[in-house]
Design a protein around this nucleic acid. Structure first.
Length: 873
RNA sequence: GGGCGCAUAGCUCAGCGGUAGAGCGCUGCUCUUACAAAGCAGAUGUCGGCGGUUCGAAUCCGUCUGUGCCCACCA
């Protein structure tokens, strides 16, 4: 599959002077796929490395959040592939029950139809059509991004195999009595006409009105307050606190419920807060979760007064009114009877809305299916508490426990058409049979299947193994389960991660679905604001990819990826990343123009210049650093480290310093060409997981090999050269110091200046050529006048600037520097004279201060020298 | 009402016990053997306030203020 092991001389391709990502990226990706680089072999001997994609909803297109997540997963998997693992990045999509059904319903609405016009079967067919279009769009976006997924293994939560997994686990839970059917108060969406689970409720502060109503007459009267007056039609009691003296005499009696002619009991219940309002609560067991519980405790009847659309069903003047119309109508009627005590007052309170359609939810008593979560959640919690599963960053564990330790039973039935239909059949005489995947459903007169479907998270909770072929014991399950790491956003910890943990542990005999959970943050705009369509700051990642390249988008996202922390992104930053890609591009061009090569062994250290040894020493440090960051999911740090190493050290210093060497030709130029080839080779490989496209183009051009995708991940050779590092640091100091002097003097960058260098006896002697080149210093000819003498790092640079400049600015600057150095010296001296410090501070710190003192003293000497050397006047 | 987090350069963020950092932005000078999507040089911060611990605090503790997120059945 790869011929990377073979080296062959190659002709260096011509690269244009600017990187044009748009022309390069598309074809590269298709080539990778054709060559099968991203496919995973379950029979391979290599150690597996598995990550499943958090399956995007088929409802639409990918946003920057997906691009972000995919960048991280792609980087992890590409590196592991280079390290020789059998990598599976499992792709696929989620049917996203209610979300998708709503989207398709909206499409239908445009044609003036509802799903009921089509009927269940035709509607579901229609959703499948939508899925085909939308799914194609998503995989197209993933290709643009460069996602190295195993396309041949793409899965969908409604696939036959995955549906079988759903049925299997449902049956198992049912048989274990962990699934049951019960009537409870649930969150009901009167628009979607389905139950939704607690976590699908979005609470927001709504302006309501709190009205106080008198129930009963005379002495036997009680005032209750409510924001949902219409529910009073379903009241079956008034509750007060048992210890409340005000109402003790009424407990056990019945009072009149206005407008209805019914009499309802007054009950005493601990739940009532005597301090709140009047201390009396109207009880509507069928339409309020608390009241439902009170009703249960006191054996109260439950009276349903609203239908599934939120319309009054009680015969009388309000029959057929919508719940909100009914609310004002009833308040009006009560007022007419003089029942409204105080004027209604504005009241802002938290109201639940459907997270899919934003409709105000209606608590509703109904028969639903439930998962008994207690034992499952316990196992999910224990796996993390016991350290078997690690959450990264660790602070996020708190959030996880907050969820998993307080889990209610999970309402899994939805009154939808799109989803996995619950595999339970009801018989004519109330029998109930749960049918397993290999069983025949009962037939005969009166038998029918449950019409409800399952919550979409039920199937996505199986994703880490259902995608591998479970419930069959496939080779893939054996090889790729458990997954190596789960990469996902903290916002989905409860929705998805907890479900996977529960189901994974339950279905796979206690083996958790993954051993590490790496949580990332949310993508935000450049001001740190949440991105949203309604706010108008949402960005289509494709726009930026078209403009700046996928690499630029990826690099920017990776560079902002601090663990568990939100990542802001702005177009300027993407532009900056594009600039980086272009920089790498041009540096490689320069290298190729100067004969940089990866062929042959690296020359022995003795043959290398200090500059060569320095960059190789640094290179290996960076390899080690990047590895450590990867292992800790520190994407921002590893990206930043590579950015600075490549740009600052390799491009700005090594390349510049080497120019003299290359111009000189001969053996040293050959050695540097090989070193530069090595440095770029390794740097490109290190960069590849984050920016796959540019690195592929450049690396193949540099090496002539097949593809960096299947290249070996760089290893730290262990080569370090502290002496060379020190030497180059000094060289940098000399050059920077003289440059600063030149700049302060107003010399133009290109202006040549005669100079005499005194470098003998210092390590810098070998660098005279580079120094002169970089500083534009000409040889000192006849009549040389040393008008400025700069002592740095034991060397002296004397410049002839006769008649060119005025020294006043320089004198000022040096005076300032001198003052700073003297202050520094004073601080260090004071510290070293402090007995408490000397007694308690660790040696390492003392040494640091000593060094600082020495440096300050050296600076003072240097600056004084420079000042003294400045001509007077 | 609970819980968690954050306040560091104009903006977005690293640093989390030993001399204040990065990217972008800003100022100047430059087409110098790749790159102006560039190079070189430069400016900018009582590290939110107040207390405390420590030889030493942006970094640890307390408190206040501001801000964000998550959870919650208070009618």
């Amino acid at each position: 599959m790869t011929d990377n092991t073979q080296q062959h001389p190659h002709s260096v391709p011509e690269l244009p002077t600017q990187y044009a990502p748009a022309e390069v990226e598309g074809p590269l990706y298709e080539r990778w796929v054709e060559r099968g680089y991203f496919e995973a072999d379950a029979q391979s001997d290599k150690e597996p490395y598995t990550i499943v994609i958090p399956p995007p909803n088929v409802t639409g297109s990918l946003h920057l959040g997906h691009a972000f997540e995919h960048t991280l997963i792609d980087a992890l998997t590409r590196r592991k592939r280079m390290q020789g693992y059998e990598v599976l990045w499992q792709p696929g999509m989620d049917h996203a029950g209610i979300a998708t059904q709503n989207v398709v319903e909206r499409e239908l609405a445009k044609e003036g139809k509802s799903r009921h016009d089509l009927g269940r079967e035709a509607f579901v067919e229609r959703v499948w059509q939508w899925k085909a279009e939308s799914g194609g769009q998503i995989s197209g976006q993933m290709r643009r991004l460069g996602d190295g997924v195993a396309w041949s293994r793409e899965r969908f939560t409604m696939d036959e195999g995955l549906s079988k997994a759903v049925q299997t686990i449902f049956k198992k839970l049912y048989d274990d009595e962990l699934i049951y059917r019960a009537e409870r108060i649930i969150n009901w969406c009167p628009r979607c006409l389905t139950a939704i689970s607690d976590i699908e409720v979005e609470y927001q502060d709504d302006d309501g009105e709190l009205v106080s109503i008198t129930y009963g007459e005379g002495d036997a009267s009680i005032v209750v307050a409510t924001t949902r007056a219409e529910t009073m039609l379903g009241d079956t009691a008034v509750a007060v606190h048992p210890e409340d003296e005000r109402y003790k005499h009424l407990v056990g009696t019945e009072i009149e419920l206005p407008l209805t002619g019914r009499r309802i009991p007054v009950v005493a219940d601990e739940h009532v807060d005597p301090e709140f309002g009047t201390g009396a609560v109207k009880v509507t067991p069928a339409h309020d979760p608390n009241d439902f519980e009170i009703g249960r405790r006191h054996d109260l009847p439950s009276l349903t007064v609203l239908d599934e659309h939120g319309v009054i069903t009680v015969h009388g003047p309000f029959l057929g009114l919508d719940r909100f119309e009914a609310r004002s109508a009833i308040v009006g009627a009560l007022r007419a009877e003089g029942r409204i005590v105080a004027e209604k007052r504005p009241y802002t309170h938290s109201v639940g809305h459907c997270s899919r359609c934003k409709t105000t939810l209606e608590p509703r008593q109904s028969m639903q299916w439930w998962v008994k979560t207690a034992p499952l959640a316990k196992a999910a919690a224990d796996a993390v508490r016991g350290g078997e599963v690690k959450i990264h960053p660790q602070e996020m564990e708190k959030r996880y426990f907050e969820w998993v330790d307080n889990l209610h039973d999970w309402c899994i039935s939805r009154q939808l058409w799109w989803g996995h239909r619950i595999p339970v059949w009801y018989g004519p005489d109330g029998e109930m049979v749960c049918v397993g995947p290999d069983e025949q459903p009962p037939t005969g007169e009166g038998w029918h299947q449950e019409t409800d479907v399952l919550d979409t998270w039920f199937s996505s909770g199986l994703w880490p193994f259902s995608t591998l072929g479970w419930p069959e014991r496939t080779e893939s399950v054996e090889k790729f389960y458990p997954n190596s790491v789960l990469v996902t956003g903290y916002d989905i910890l409860f929705f998805w991660v907890v479900r996977m943990m529960m189901f994974g542990l339950y279905a796979m005999d206690g083996t958790p679905p993954f051993h590490t959970i790496a949580l990332h943050g949310m993508v935000r705009d450049q001001f740190g604001k949440k991105m949203s369509k309604s706010f108008g700051n949402a960005v289509n990642p494709l726009d930026w990819m078209d403009k700046y390249g996928s690499d630029a988008v990826r690099f920017t996202l990776a560079r902002g990826a601090n663990p568990g922390v939100d990542v802001p992104i702005g177009e300027d930053w993407v532009q900056g990343s594009r600039n980086f890609a272009n920089k790498v591009w041009n540096a490689t061009r320069f290298a190729l123009m100067n004969g940089a090569t990866v062929e042959g062994e690296l020359p022995p250290a003795e043959q290398m210049s200090a500059t060569d040894r320095w960059i190789l020493s640094r290179l290996n440090s960076v390899v080690a650093e990047v590895d450590a960051y990867y292992d800790d999911y520190q994407f921002a740090k590893l990206t930043d480290a590579l950015f600075h190493f490549a740009w600052d050290e390799v491009f700005d210093w090594y390349v510049e310093l080497s120019k003299t060497t290359f111009m000189g030709g001969g053996e040293p130029a050959k050695v540097s060409a090989r070193v530069l080839g090595e440095v770029l080779d390794v740097t490109l490989r290190l960069l590849h997981p984050v920016v796959p496209f540019v690195t592929e183009t450049l690396w193949t051009a540099l090496t002539g090999k097949e593809s960096v995708v299947v290249a070996e991940w760089p290893a730290d050779s262990g080569f370090r050269d502290a002496g060379a590092e020190r030497e180059i640091e000094e060289l940098q100091r000399v050059i920077t110091e003289v440059r600063r002097f030149r700049s302060d003097q107003g010399l133009q960058p290109g202006q040549k200046v005669p100079a005499r260098l005194e470098l003998s006896g210092t390590a810098l002697a070998a660098h005279e050529g580079a120094i002169r080149q970089l500083l534009r210093l000409q040889p000192a000819g006849d009549g040389f006048q040393a008008t400025a003498t700069l002592p740095v790092a034991g060397a002296t640079v004397a410049l002839d600037l006769s008649g060119v400049i005025d020294f006043e600015a320089e004198r000022k600057r040096l005076a300032k520097d001198l003052a700073a150095a003297e202050k520094e010296k004073a601080q260090a001296t004071a510290k070293l004279g402090n007995e408490a410090f000397l007694a308690k501070a660790p040696e390492a710190v003392k040494e640091k201060i000593q060094k600082r003192l020495a440096a300050a003293e050296a600076d003072i000497e240097r600056i004084s020298g420079q000042l003294a050397a400045l001509p007077q006047g």
